[in-house]
Design a protein around this nucleic acid. Structure first.
Length: 917
RNA sequence: GGGCGUAUAGGCUCAGCGGGAGAGCACUACGUUGACAUCGUAGGGGUCACAAGUUCGAUCCUUGUUACGCCCA
């Protein structure tokens, strides 16, 4: 017996265990012999992560695709795994050490610290994998991979993959080491990539500083102008004014730049200024970077602490003077007064000191301060720490070179984006890509396979043994090597994910079978971080694209359209949704709202609505069971006699087509809605209602056919809904399997319905007529305020043979569903009746003494008004010679038949109205 | 500043689309109906942001404007 209520909480865990026990998620489970493959690699969630609603959407979509393709009997692999998430994970463990008042990372040393991180990873990392299981994810968890492998050891396959890629890219000249400005995180004391920096606009200031000219040099600076902007008055100055948003960087100034065409300063190029507070003599250079229209037109140049200034410095051979420690404090080579000060403290101190200078001498020190909105680089994760351009030695990937093939793949259609518009985003970034800084000054991650000799020459090699050999050969004697302490950017290893998870660099069977993958499902926010880099790495090492299709799904926002964030407190926890409404309702909601190219505003009431849908399905199945609708061995859906049953199998076929097409086109909302409409709006609302009188009647053969058909259609529904709602469908599959022929296994391994050829236009016409009559009676009853309890007679006038035949076949149905007393064909409409028109016939509900004539007249008049409007519209079109001449004939025919139908209807209703007065 | 996207029911969340404006929620009325009140039946409600253009015909295509969102600088 199917329970009275469906309780997801008690069913889901049990069903999931059954799937696991049956090994139904394993690669190739249920596949037809020799079937095509379908493979997906999961976007590996951070090992520190927990399931948020974005993951829920991402994995719901993957699971729908995977379950669908598995039911198509393909050889399916959904490859799961996690990312070691270098920075995030290291921070978590460091914080734990701090909270437990244990020795810090540096105090305990690298080896012990890493042991602790692995320990933590083993204990509490991977929560998210269990949370994915709650969602119903059918990934092959036996193949779970981690970006750092089992234990991070050099001979671990995942580590070998990274090492091989690094070494070979280095050999090919695509990885190099160089001293460049990087985005430096002074809190974490590591470099980060430009993608991990977020520029945030803040209210800042522009400080205008006077730099005195050296060697007694003066010049004439224009201070008044005529209408045409020509200078009319000058003053003699022995200083230049430079403007900066970061006064503290003046400690590292090594030049002042003016534009080569700026006449005001032409005489100063090649002269020097004495840097205030520091006393350094620095040159004035001409460089096009200086914009004459901004501020005074002269800019201070700090090559070691600004990306633009760095370039200016290189062009003009200016010194690169670093003024910060790795923690963003002023270094000891700076003037004593500032040593050891934090960046922002130093800024204040310098402004104070420059102000003091100005008070002593009005041609020195601070000129003035201007309020200005400025863009400040922040750490993209915390959005709190200001990122510092910092000069260090780092490892870089020549991303611009590798971008070429990655661009070509998409341009030439070997990989396509869905929706396509994201290709533009991809192109725009790859066309302007900058070198990728891949080294991080962390401990948690893939340690860079480079060893340094006594003179700091780097030997890049697969193993220390190999490096040692190379070094010994190079120096001609045994030397002591020191391994690079740094690790690689997390995204370096994630970039290899589609093939490293399949065993690369070993030539495994999986790699051969499942790579390249079929589709990547991910959010657009990691196109650059991940998608583009997987493309580059795969094309470089496997000479093929890692996936044929990239499906980009939307961002999930709250119902007001705001990004969910912990600080805003508007986070919807998918696990809470699953607890409250069930995994199926949660999944169905996400799928139903996943329209392409549009953000999802998740509204709880939608989840509630789809929870109700789960209940509806449950109850329908329960009703069928109660009415002994059992599957029949050898049932043939094409052999039905009753129009009702011929109609429903045809409608099922249409629904199957729509759902199949929706999933295949990545239009999950269309598939979900087609399923919802069919199951609720057609199967439950009409078919089951029509079936009731048959079940209660005594026509044994009709009863048998309808029972068998109902059971058959329910089976199809369970299959069609399974990718969206795996739990409730699997449970009902088992319940309905208790009667009738034995099931051959789990629903998730059944074959997807192929129902072509079941459509039956004749039955459709019969049933549409029936729906129409019943709806019309119901509508009239409501509008006439007829109590639901009142059973009325229905009179039909002017029916043709078809209608009579239909009426004979369906009298009991109509009587029941429209709550009638009896139905009789008559030759005349009784006076005082409410009337309506279906087809050629006019129908009447004799309500004399009961209906309000005026209300009925108004109702009919309103209908006529609508029809008149429609007729007028069509007439106008048909009267237009251009329309008749140019519109396609089928459109014209359609308009004509619409017009006829409307006129016919209007006339009949008009006649009904006339009878009332 | 450059790029991308979105504007559809007097409320909310959203479909759709070159020829007849849709769903769910909310709302109103009714509910003695042997699956389901997590329900049923019916109903009200939109000049599809604004303007111009293309077209026989525009909610849909083009351009512009406005508003909002996102990405990049």
């Amino acid at each position: 017996m199917i329970e009275k209520t469906y309780e997801p909480g008690s069913v889901e865990g049990r069903i999931y265990e059954q799937w696991l026990k049956a090994n139904a998620f394993a690669a190739g489970a249920g596949a037809a012999p020799g079937a095509d493959t379908f493979s997906i690699v999961i976007p590996p969630p951070n090992v520190t992560g927990s399931l948020h609603v974005g993951h829920a959407l991402n994995n719901t979509i993957q699971d729908i695709l995977v379950r669908f393709n598995r039911m198509l009997k393909k050889d399916v692999l959904w490859q799961p795994g996690m990312d070691h998430a270098g920075i995030a994970t290291q921070m978590i463990v460091e914080r734990q050490l701090m909270e437990a008042q244990e020795p810090s990372r540096r105090d305990m040393g690298r080896e012990e610290f890493l042991r602790r991180v692995w320990q933590w990873k083993g204990e509490s990392g991977g929560t998210i994998m269990n949370q994915l299981k709650r969602l119903g994810a059918s990934a092959d968890f036996s193949r779970e991979r981690f970006t750092m492998g089992e234990n991070g050891a050099p001979d671990d396959q995942m580590v070998r993959a990274v090492t091989k890629v690094f070494v070979e890219l280095h050999e090919r000249g695509l990885i190099y080491r160089a001293k460049r400005l990087v985005n430096w995180h002074p809190g974490l004391e590591t470099a980060i990539s430009d993608l991990e920096v977020e520029n945030i606009e803040v209210n800042g200031h522009m400080w205008h500083l006077r730099y005195p000219l050296a060697d007694g040099v003066t010049y004439e600076f224009p201070i008044e102008f005529d209408e045409d902007g020509r200078p009319t008055a000058f003053e003699t100055r022995d200083y230049v004014i430079v403007a900066t948003t970061r006064p503290e960087t003046m400690l590292g100034d090594s030049g002042v730049a003016v534009h080569p065409d700026d006449e005001r300063y032409a005489s100063l190029v090649g002269k020097f200024v004495d840097l205030p507070l520091v006393g350094r003599r620095i040159p004035i250079v001409a460089d096009e970077y200086a914009d004459p229209s901004l501020g005074s037109g002269a800019v201070k140049i700090t090559p070691a602490h600004d990306f633009n200034d760095f370039e200016v410095g290189v062009r003009n051979d200016l010194e690169q003077i670093n003024i910060f420690t790795t923690r963003g404090e002023i270094i000891d080579t700076a003037p004593e007064a500032y040593r050891g000060l934090d960046r922002f403290v130093a800024r204040k101190r310098i402004v104070v000191d420059l102000t003091a200078l100005a008070e002593e001498n009005s041609t020195r020190g601070l000129d003035h301060i201007e309020d200005k909105k400025i863009m400040v680089p922040h750490d993209e994760k915390s959005k709190l720490v200001v990122i510092e351009p910092f000069l260090t030695d780092q490892w870089w990937v020549k991303a611009d070179v590798m971008a070429g093939p990655a661009l070509a793949s998409v341009r030439e259609g070997r990989t396509r984006f869905v929706p396509q518009q994201y290709e533009n985003t991809y192109f725009a970034w790859l066309e302007n890509i900058k070198p990728w800084c891949i080294s991080r000054q962390l401990w948690w991650g893939h340690q860079i396979p480079a060893w340094y000799g006594p003179d700091n020459r780097a030997f890049v090699a697969h193993t220390d043994f190999e490096a040692q050999a190379a070094a010994n050969a190079h120096y001609g004697k045994p030397v002591v090597l020191r391994r690079d302490e740094d690790v690689l950017d997390t995204w370096f290893s994630s970039a290899l994910w589609p093939f490293s998870t399949m065993g690369w660099p070993d030539e495994t069977a999986e790699l051969k079978r499942y790579f390249p993958t079929s589709v990547l499902v991910t959010g657009f926010d990691i196109i650059f971080f991940w998608v583009a880099r997987m493309m580059m790495m795969s094309l470089e090492f496997e000479k093929t694209e890692p996936f044929h299709t990239v499906y980009m799904h939307a961002l999930v926002r709250d119902e007001k359209g705001q990004k969910m964030s912990k600080t805003k407190g508007n986070v919807i926890d998918p696990l809470a949704l699953i607890d409250q409404y069930g995994a199926d309702a949660t999944r169905f909601t996400l799928a139903a709202m996943a329209a392409q190219g549009r953000d999802i505003r998740l509204a709880i009431n939608r989840v509630e609505g789809y929870r109700n849908f789960v209940t509806k399905l449950w109850n329908a199945a329960r009703f069928l069971e109660m009415n002994e609708c059992r599957r029949v061995e050898g049932y043939d859906a094409k052999a039905n006699r009753l129009p009702l049953n011929r109609w429903i199998v045809g409608a099922t076929a249409r629904a199957a087509t729509a759902i199949t097409k929706g999933i295949a086109d990545y239009k999950f909302n269309e598939a979900a809605n087609a399923a919802y409409d069919f199951v609720w709006g057609t199967f439950c609302d009409w078919y089951v209602e029509f079936a009731k009188p048959i079940f209660m009647g005594d026509d044994a053969s009709a009863k048998a056919e309808t029972r068998a058909t109902a059971a058959y259609v329910l089976d199809q529904i369970l299959k069609l809904l399974h990718p969206f709602m795996p739990f409730v469908t699997e449970e009902l599959w088992a319940e309905t399997g208790k009667h009738g022929p034995a099931r051959d296994g789990l629903l998730m391994l059944q074959e997807w319905p192929h129902l072509e050829g079941l459509e039956d236009p004749e039955a459709d016409a019969d049933l549409n007529w029936l729906l129409n009559v019943i709806s019309s009676v119901r509508s009239v009853r409501t509008e006439m305020n007829v109590p639901a309890s009142a059973k009325l007679p229905l009179i039909m006038v002017g029916a043709d043979e078809t209608t009579l035949r239909r009426l004979v076949a369906s009298t009991s149905l109509i009587t029941r569903l429209a709550r009638l007393e009896e139905i009789s064909p008559q030759s005349e409409i009784p006076s005082g009746s409410a009337q309506f028109v279906v087809g050629e016939a006019t129908w009447a509900l004799p309500l004399a003494g009961f209906i309000d004539l005026e209300v009925e007249k108004a109702r009919l008049a309103k209908d006529i008004g609508k029809l008149e409007g429609e007729i007028a519209g069509v007439d106008k079109k048909l009267a237009n010679a251009q329309f008749v001449a140019k519109a396609p004939t089928e459109v014209i025919e359609e308009q004509k038949s619409r017009r006829e139908a409307a006129i016919d209807r209007r006339d009949r209703i008009g006649a009904a109205l006339a009878r009332l007065s």
